[in-house]
Nucleic acid binder design. Structure first.
Lengths: 238, 238
DNA sequence: CCAAAAGTGTTTCACTTACACCCATGA
DNA sequence: TCATGGGTGTAAGTGAAACACTTTTGG
C-alpha cells in the first residue's frame, strides 16, 4: 500500500497530466481606488470577456519566472512585487481541457512608465476592485481570494509600499492602507504608528506642484526592514 | 503581443508539460512534541530516504482530492484538516523529470485509530519537528515552510483544535499552542483568553483515569465560530 | 485672504502581562 | 498523606483609539 504512488511516480510520463498555467492578479493604486489589471480575451473560450493575465508554464522556467514572463508579454510590466498565493485545480475550470493554475498577485507602481503604457493598450484596462466585470474561467474566484490575501498581508508586511513610488508622503501611504483595507484610518494615529516602526526615513524633499502646503517625502528603509525580518519580528503595521 | 499566450493556450497539449504532484506535511501532537509523518522511500531516487507522503494528481481528481487519496493510501489517514499552502516548481526538484508539487499541510488527531495504525507500519514514522532526518527531494524546504505557515495560522484560526480529540481539557489545548508556537504560555491568561472567545463550550464530563484531580472537558463551538467568521471577525487567539 | 492639505499631543480605555495559592483526586 | 495537576483574581503596564486646532502654501 505504501508504494502505490511510487509506481505511479516511476511511470508518471505514461499518464495524461493536467496543463499547468500561472495567472496574475495585478494590483495598482491610483488617486481613486485599488485597481486590478485585466486583459480582454481575443479568442474562444470566453471570447471578448475580461480575464487575468496568465498562460502556460514552460518546461525551462519556474512558476515565478512564468508569471513574470506573462506580465511582461501581456501587460508590459517589468518590475512588480510578485507572490504566489493559491493553486486552482478544479477539474472543469477550463472548458477545453484540464488546466491547473498557480495564481499570483502582483503589486505595481502606477508611477512606473511601463505600466502606464500597458493601460493604453486597447486590450488591457484597469478596473476598480469594486467595479469588476464578469470574468472568464474561474477568475472571479481567483481575484476574490487575491484581495483577501492582500488585505491579510498588507498589515503584516510592508508590501503596501510596492504600490507607491520610491519617495512618497505619509498621506499617500495612509491612502494605500485605507484603500486596500477599505476603511478610514485616523491620521495622527497612523503617523505615530508607522513612524514608530522605524522603517520609514524622512528625506529632505517635499512633494511638488501642489496647491497647498507641500508634504514631506519619505522612503522605505530596506536595511532596517531586513534586520527586523531576520530577527523574526512580527509586524502589525496597522 | 497581448495574444502570445493565447496561441500557446489553444495548443497547450502539443507542448511538454510538467508532471503535477501533491505532497502532504502531516502534523500530529503527542504528549511530547509536534510531530511530522514521514514515509521511507522504497525506490530510486532517494531510495531509503524519508520523504513526505504524496504522489501524482490524476486527471479526474482535484488537488484536494489527490492529497486526501495520498494520505489514505500512504498513511492510512482518513480524516484530517487539510490545507494547501504553497506550490513548489523549481525545475530540478525531482531528478527524474520536471515535477511541480502542490504542498498541503494536514493536521490529524493522534487519538484517531487510523492514524495510530499508520504509525505501526514499517515504512512510516512520526518525527519531532526538531528532530527530522535529511529528507528526499526538496522536502526539507517544504516542511520548513509548512511549520512556518502552521505557526502563523494557529494564532488566527482555531485549526489547533484539529490536533485534539473532540473533547479536550484546557491544559491539552494550551499544550497545542505551546508546542506549535514553541514557547510557554501563562496558564491563567491562556484560560481567560480562550474562554473569552466564546468558541469553547464546557461539557459536563471530566477526563478519566488520571492520578490527580480530573480536568473538565470542553468542546469547540463550531456554530459560534462560523458566525464570527461570517461577520469577518479577525482572530488573535494567542 | 481663502482653500486645501500638512502637521502635531493628550487622554481614555481595553487588553496584555505578571504573578501564587488552594483544591480535588488517586495512589 | 502525599504527589500531581486543576482551577482561580488582581494589579500594573502597554498599546490602541478618539479627538481639534494651527501651519504652510498656492491660487
Amino acid at each position: 500500500m505504501i508504494n502505490t504512488n511510487e509506481a505511479a511516480g516511476a511511470f508518471a510520463y505514461r499518464y495524461a497530466r493536467p496543463a499547468l498555467a500561472v495567472d496574475c492578479v495585478v494590483f495598482g493604486l491610483d488617486d481613486e481606488d485599488l485597481k486590478v489589471l485585466l486583459i480582454r480575451r481575443g479568442m474562444e473560450p470566453f471570447l471578448g470577456r475580461w480575464a487575468l493575465p496568465g498562460g502556460f508554464v514552460r518546461m525551462d522556467e519556474t512558476l515565478d519566472e512564468a508569471a513574470r514572463r506573462e506580465l511582461r508579454e501581456e501587460a508590459g510590466i517589468d518590475r512588480a512585487h510578485l507572490e504566489q498565493f493559491h493553486t486552482f485545480g478544479a477539474i472543469d475550470r477550463d472548458p477545453r481541457e484540464r488546466v491547473v493554475s498557480v495564481a499570483h498577485f502582483a503589486l505595481v507602481k502606477l508611477s512606473d512608465h511601463a505600466v502606464r503604457a500597458a493601460t493604453d493598450a486597447r486590450e488591457a484596462a484597469w478596473f476598480g476592485v469594486d467595479d469588476l466585470p464578469k470574468l472568464a474561467f474561474d477568475h472571479d474566484v481567483i481575484v476574490e481570494m487575491a484581495i483577501h490575501r492582500l488585505r491579510a498581508k498588507v498589515s503584516q508586511s510592508p508590501i503596501g509600499l510596492e504600490l507607491l513610488p520610491k519617495r512618497f508622503t505619509l498621506t499617500q501611504l495612509q491612502r494605500v492602507y485605507e484603500r486596500v483595507l477599505d476603511r478610514e484610518i485616523d491620521k495622527r494615529n497612523f503617523r505615530k504608528k508607522v513612524l514608530a516602526t522605524g522603517l520609514l526615513v524622512e528625506t529632505d524633499e517635499v512633494e511638488q506642484d501642489v496647491a497647498h502646503r507641500a508634504a514631506r517625502l519619505f522612503r522605505f528603509d530596506e536595511r532596517a526592514y531586513r534586520k527586523l525580518e531576520k530577527d523574526g519580528f512580527v509586524f502589525d503595521l496597522i
